[in-house]
C-alpha cells in the first residue's frame, strides 16, 4: 500500500505527513510536483499536505491547482482512490474543483475572521489547538472511515485562510444533508459554538472538513499529522497516554484502501 505525499514548491508539511503515513502502517514517499505525472498512477492513495504552495500567490492553493500533476490526481480520484488535502492541500483541492466535488469552484477558503460577542476580535493567521467533532457516519470518507459519529479529536490549526464560504445557495445545507460535512470546530464538550475561539476562523457553521459525494476525497484545515503522538498534544503533563487523535485519519485511509480493494 503506497501513498504519494504530493509536494509543491512552498509545501512545508511533507515530512511530518510522511511520518504519519508510515506510522499508520502504510508505505509512502514524497512526490515532487515536477516528476512525470504518469508515475502518480502507481500509488494507492494521495495526500496533499500543508504549507504555502507558490507562497499563496494570487490566492492560497490556486497556482498549484493548475499544475499537470493535479489533472492526473483528478483522474486517480475518479477511479475511487483516496485523496486527503490538509490545510493548504484542502485549499488546493477546493481551487481544483475536487471539493466539494462538482468540478466547479463552489467554495472559497477566505481570510480568517474571529468574532466574539458580535465583535471582530482578530483577523488572519492563527496557530492554536482546536477540538473537532466528527459529524458524519463511520465509513463516510476516506479520512474518517474508522471514526464514530460524534467522536471528538484534538488537532492544531495554523492558517490565515480557512474561513469556508460559498456563494452557491443551498450548498451548505446540501453538504450537511449528504453527510459531506466531516468535521466541525467545537468546544471540549462537543458543542459547535459559533464564536471565537471555538469557531477559530469564522468558518460557515464551524465547518473544518468536508468530503466529496463519493467520500474518497477529503479536505480539512486542521493538521492531523501534527497530532499522531500523544506527546504532541498540549498541555504537556495532562494528556491521555497512547497514540494521538490525528493518527485515526491516516489509519482510516489505510482501512479505506483495504476495503476498496
Amino acid at each position: 500500500m503506497r501513498i504519494a505525499v504530493i509536494q509543491f514548491p512552498g509545501t512545508n508539511c511533507e515530512h511530518e505527513t510522511l511520518v504519519a503515513v508510515r506510522d499508520a502502517g502504510m508505505d509512502g514517499e514524497i512526490f515532487r510536483w515536477n516528476r512525470p505525472e504518469q508515475e502518480l498512477s502507481e500509488f494507492d492513495g494521495y495526500i496533499v499536505p500543508g504549507g504555502f504552495s507558490y507562497q499563496d500567490r494570487l490566492r492560497a492553493g490556486v497556482i498549484a491547482s493548475k499544475e499537470p500533476v493535479m489533472a492526473t490526481l483528478k483522474e486517480e480520484a475518479a477511479e475511487g482512490k483516496p485523496v486527503i488535502g490538509i490545510c493548504n492541500g484542502f485549499q488546493i483541492l477546493v481551487e481544483s474543483g475536487m471539493l466539494p466535488g462538482s468540478g466547479e469552484i463552489d467554495l472559497a477558503l477566505a481570510q480568517n475572521v474571529m468574532v466574539k460577542g458580535g465583535r471582530i476580535v482578530r483577523r488572519g493567521y492563527y496557530c492554536g489547538w482546536t477540538t473537532l467533532r466528527h459529524e458524519s457516519l463511520p465509513r463516510r470518507s476516506c479520512g474518517s472511515f474508522l471514526l464514530d459519529g460524534g467522536a471528538l479529536l484534538q488537532m492544531p490549526i495554523a492558517h490565515a485562510e480557512g474561513n469556508l464560504v460559498t456563494a452557491k445557495e443551498g450548498l451548505i445545507q446540501e453538504l450537511a444533508d449528504e453527510d459531506q460535512v466531516i468535521f466541525r470546530y467545537c468546544n471540549s464538550s462537543g458543542t459547535a459554538v459559533d464564536e471565537f475561539p471555538v469557531n477559530v476562523n469564522g468558518s460557515t457553521e464551524n465547518i473544518a472538513g468536508i468530503c466529496n459525494p463519493e467520500g474518497n476525497v477529503l479536505g480539512m484545515m486542521p493538521h492531523p499529522e501534527r497530532a499522531i503522538f500523544s506527546w504532541q498534544l498540549p498541555p504537556p503533563g495532562r494528556r491521555p497516554p497512547g497514540p494521538g487523535p490525528g493518527r485515526m485519519v491516516f489509519e482510516s485511509m489505510r482501512r479505506f484502501i483495504e476495503v476498496s480493494r
Binding site: C13, H15, E16, G124, Y125, C127, A158, R226, Q232
Partner: peptide, 9 residues
Amino acid sequence: RYYDTEVQG
C-alpha cells in the same frame, strides 16, 4: 498566535 509553533510536529 501568529507563530506556527506546530510545523514539523
